[in-house]
Design a protein around this nucleic acid. Structure first.
Lengths: 353, 353
DNA sequence: ATGAAAGCGCTAACAC
DNA sequence: GTGTTAGCGCTTTCAT
């Protein structure tokens, strides 16, 4: 492992000159540059980035906090972030713990490793009293996390922190939000353009806040905007998994006196379960019933027919996360916030009435 | 940002003493330790890991090379590696480029950032002449990569490099392999125990080497071991995607004079497509035809019925990757190689004849 | 255009 | 048990 000193010695110049050549930072005569380049080549010199970072105070590494990489949506966020980061010469160091304590420890380590910035994608921990782990954290979990995060950040050199979704802490310098509510509305409006009058809704328990609440509000917005009647018996609750959607739909088919012509499902998992249930029960999708999902993960590509869904455009989300961070890092951009607008991804599960 | 000097000054001791307290490296009297701890606390001191690494020559960071995080199988490998790494105090820095050049650049950067070790999970690049990107690289791609990797590694401080699957380079210090061939055989044997005599096989083009070849050989092994006849017309080729499996199965149903009672599909995507096609064509799975897949990714959980499959046990694979690396790092273990044995994951797509 | 000196924040090695 | 010195490999600052 050759160091900069070795190169300097071989080239017969000072280390400073080598540094200048390597970094192209300031003018060096062609002749000396040549000598240095040769020495670099023969020694196979590679700069020690640790040493460089120690003095420049930049690591060109950013930390990404994520709790469930296996979640297809999240892996796409991550993928997009990595791709963008690479384009701009940044590497990603991951934190992906499953409980609060180790996550916090991990965050602290990232700080200690001097990451240039941080992206908080998801904060969601397995909770003893709730085994139906959803991909969205509870309000209490989030607050607890935010609070602990602040304590950690307070001890550290301030760096840009970007979050996906709102967090309540002073250390956030940028934000990416997904317009879930608009998405909820778009689903209804899309079905409306296909002449569906009777629309049902299957969702995880609706909380006031959070993604489930927003999408449901959007559903109501859409129904109102299109002049449709919301029928209580067509609002079904379930666990937010394929199985949950399957059971909910199955029971719905059996118990409902009359089925709506279309159903909006609060996420793709539920929607896929619903499609499976409909088919199992002898209904044809989309001929007998149309189904639309939310998210745009690729689980919707696996069913037959494919799931038409309101995509949150996960790549765009990931790109936005990095882009907002990059703005903070370079201070060139003014954008410290981005809102991702969903779009309908047409596959085969919706058909005109 | 307090440094070790600040703490030393406040505590009225030398930096060395602070270092000793922080690292617990050698004995310090209770009284001074107390003073140091207090100073650490009031200043909110956090060690700069860059500086530490520069002198200890250890970063407690390992590089993971991966080309398709979005692939559910790979994201599980990664997840398992991260979890194991965290347990042992290591962080993961990712390289996930999509073409050869940027991958190599990225690897070089990881070296320059002084990772303690590296895990090469997948090397597979989009190839202009082959749009049907499979998750497994071609022989040429692998050789080109291996060659270039060697050139990079030659210039760097030697560190343990672990690969998933065989690579041909001198710098590999550990290896994790998956027994695909055994898996191929297990599928047949599993179907055999369920009294299936007539077994078909759907696969991507079978090459001599690589995963497709191995699984096919395993299929033949199994058929031989169980005393069954391989019928050429029941060996179907297709693109290794859900769509590919769908089309292949559909055509197979239409063209085959007689269908086998069970089909082994070379991966889960194909198998899921096959299930979809069977159902679309009015066959019941598993009542009319049994289908078994390979891999054990969660796409098989999405269909109805769920896909019974020969799982490569992706978590075990990821854990093994880290574990072999960790052995190399600590030099305690002797295991420099691990072979993962697949296991049958029972869901609902296989039924006794 | 080039170099010398100093220092980033930490720990290893040796003193006492 | 504690402190001193030196140095990890690099860049910054200020000379020349």
């Amino acid at each position: 492992m050759a160091t900069i000193d070795d190169v300097a010695r071989l080239a017969g110049v000072s280390t400073m000159t080598v540094s200048r050549v390597v970094n192209g930072s300031s003018a060096v005569s062609d002749k000396t540059r040549q000598k240095v380049l040769e020495a670099t080549e023969t020694l196979g010199y590679q700069p020690n980035l640790l040493a460089r970072s120690l003095v420049t105070n930049q690591t060109h590494t950013i930390g990404v906090l994520l709790t469930h990489i296996e979640n297809p949506l999240y892996s796409i966020f991550l993928s997009a972030i990595i791709q963008e980061a690479e384009k701009h010469g940044y590497d990603i160091i991951m934190s992906a713990a499953t409980d609060l304590d180790s996550t916090l420890k991990s965050i602290n380590t990232l700080y200690n490793k001097c990451v240039d910035g941080m992206i908080i994608l998801s904060v969601e921990f397995r909770d003893s009293k709730d085994d139906n782990t959803t991909i969205f954290h509870t309000v209490e979990q989030m607050q607890a996390f935010d609070h602990e995060f602040e304590k950690i950040a307070a001890k550290q050199k301030p760096i840009p922190v970007i979050t996906l979704g709102d967090h309540h802490m002073d250390y956030v310098s940028g934000l990416v939000n997904i317009d879930y509510r608009l998405g909820g509305q778009m689903a209804v409006e899309y079905l409306h353009t296909y002449n569906h009058e009777e629309i049902g809704y299957i969702s995880h328990v609706v909380t006031d806040t959070g993604i489930w609440g927003e999408r449901y509000q959007g559903f109501l917005d859409g129904m109102r905007a299109c002049g449709k009647t919301v029928r209580e018996e067509w609002i079904v609750k379930c666990v937010d998994t394929v199985e949950g959607g399957f059971h909910a739909m199955k029971e719905f088919i059996h118990s409902a006196g009359k089925l709506p012509s279309a159903i909006s499902c609060a996420n793709d998992m539920i929607a896929v379960g619903a499609i499976n249930a409909a088919i199992t029960e002898g209904l044809r999708v989309p001929e007998d019933i149309s189904i639309i999902g939310h998210d745009g993960s690729y689980v919707g590509e696996i069913t037959e027919p494919g799931l038409t869904t309101v995509s949150i455009r996960p790549y765009a989300v990931g790109r936005a996360c990095f882009s907002v961070l990059h703005d903070c890092l370079t201070d060139t951009g003014t954008a410290r916030k981005a809102v991702i607008t969903p779009e309908v991804l047409k596959r085969g599960s919706v058909k005109a009435r």
